[in-house]
Amino acid sequence: MAVSDQDVEKQIRHMMAFIEQEAKEKAEEIDAKAEEEFNIEKGRLVQNEKLKVMGFYEKKEKALELQKKIQRSNLLNQSRLQVLKSRDDHVKGLLEETRRRLAEITSSPARYDKFLEDCITQGLCQLLEPAVIVRCRRDDVDRVKKVMSKSQSEYTRITKGKKCTVAVDSSFLPADSSGGVELYSKDGKIKVANTLESRLEMVSSQMLPQIRTALFGKNPNRKFDD
C-alpha cells in the first residue's frame, strides 16, 4: 500500500515534535542541573567568605584582648613600682629621722660620753690589737681622750689581761658626721666603724624586714624575711 504524501508529512511533523519535546526536556534538565551547581558553588563561596570574615574578626578580637592584657599588666606593674617607691621613700624618711634623732645623743654630755666609751671598748675587742688609733670628730677629741682610759681598762677586763695603747688620730671624721668613732689598727689595714651612721646602717639593714612589716603589714608573697 502506497503511503501518501500527506501521511509522510504527518509523520515528519510528529517526529519533529518529538525531537523538539526531547530537546526542550533536555534543555530544562541542563538548566536545572546548572542552577543546582550554581547554588552549590554560590553556597560554598559564601561559606568560605563567611569563614574568612569570621577568622579575620576572631584574630582582631584576640589581638585586642592580648593588647588589653598587656596594657593591664603594664599598668599593674607601674602601680606596683609606684607603691614600692613610695614605701622605700617612706622607709628612707624614717631612717633619716632616726639619724637626726640619734644625733641628739651628743647634746647630752653624760650620755654621749658613755656612748663613746662603749664604742671604743667594742672596737678594741673587735680588733684585738696591741695598738689602736681612734678617729673622731674634731669637736669630740677631748671627750674621746677623757673616756679612753675607761675603755682600755674595760678591754683588759674583758680579754682577761690584754693591754692596748690607744691614740687619737690627727685626721677627723667629716664635720657633718653625727658622732661616734672609727678605730684602726696601727698599720691602718683593719678598720672598725662605730659611728652613729654606721651603727644605724647596720641595725636598719638587719631590721629592715621587721620595719617594713610594722609599717605596711606582712607581705603574703614573701616566703623569707631575710
Rank of each mutant, 00 (worst) to 15 (best):
V3M: 15
S4F: 08
D5K: 13
V8T: 10
E9Q: 12
K10V: 08
H14Q: 15
E20V: 12
A23D: 08
A23F: 07
A23P: 03
A27G: 09
E28R: 14
E29R: 12
I30S: 12
I30M: 14
D31N: 14
D31S: 10
A32T: 04
A34T: 04
A34S: 11
E35Q: 07
E36V: 06
N39C: 11
E41M: 10
G43E: 11
R44N: 11
L45M: 14
L45F: 02
V46T: 11
N48F: 05
K50D: 11
K50P: 01
K52C: 08
M54G: 03
K59C: 11
K60Q: 09
K60A: 13
K60H: 05
E61V: 07
K62N: 06
K62V: 07
A63K: 15
K68V: 14
K68M: 15
Q71R: 12
L75Y: 05
L75F: 03
N77K: 14
S79F: 06
Q82G: 12
V83I: 13
K85Q: 08
R87S: 09
D88I: 11
D89A: 15
G93E: 01
L94F: 09
L95N: 01
E96I: 10
R99I: 02
R99W: 02
R101L: 09
L102G: 02
A103K: 10
A103V: 04
I105D: 00
T106E: 12
S107Q: 15
P109Y: 09
D113N: 15
K114G: 04
L116I: 08
L116D: 01
E117L: 15
D118H: 07
I120T: 00
T121H: 04
T121P: 00
G123Y: 00
L124T: 00
C125Q: 11
Q126E: 15
L128G: 09
E129I: 01
A131W: 00
A131I: 03
V132N: 02
R137D: 00
R137W: 02
R138S: 12
D139C: 09
V141F: 03
V141W: 01
V144G: 01
K146S: 08
V147Y: 01
V147E: 00
S151K: 02
E154K: 09
R157Q: 11
K160W: 06
K160M: 15
G161Y: 03
G161S: 01
G161C: 10
K162F: 06
K163I: 05
C164R: 07
V168N: 02
D169F: 08
S170G: 03
F172D: 08
D176R: 06
S177D: 07
G179S: 02
V181I: 10
V181C: 09
D187W: 05
G188T: 05
K191Q: 15
V192P: 03
N194Q: 08
N194M: 13
T195P: 02
T195G: 05
T195A: 11
L196E: 00
E197H: 04
S198V: 07
E201G: 11
V203H: 03
S204E: 00
Q210N: 08
I211C: 00
T213H: 05
K218T: 06
N219F: 12
K223G: 06
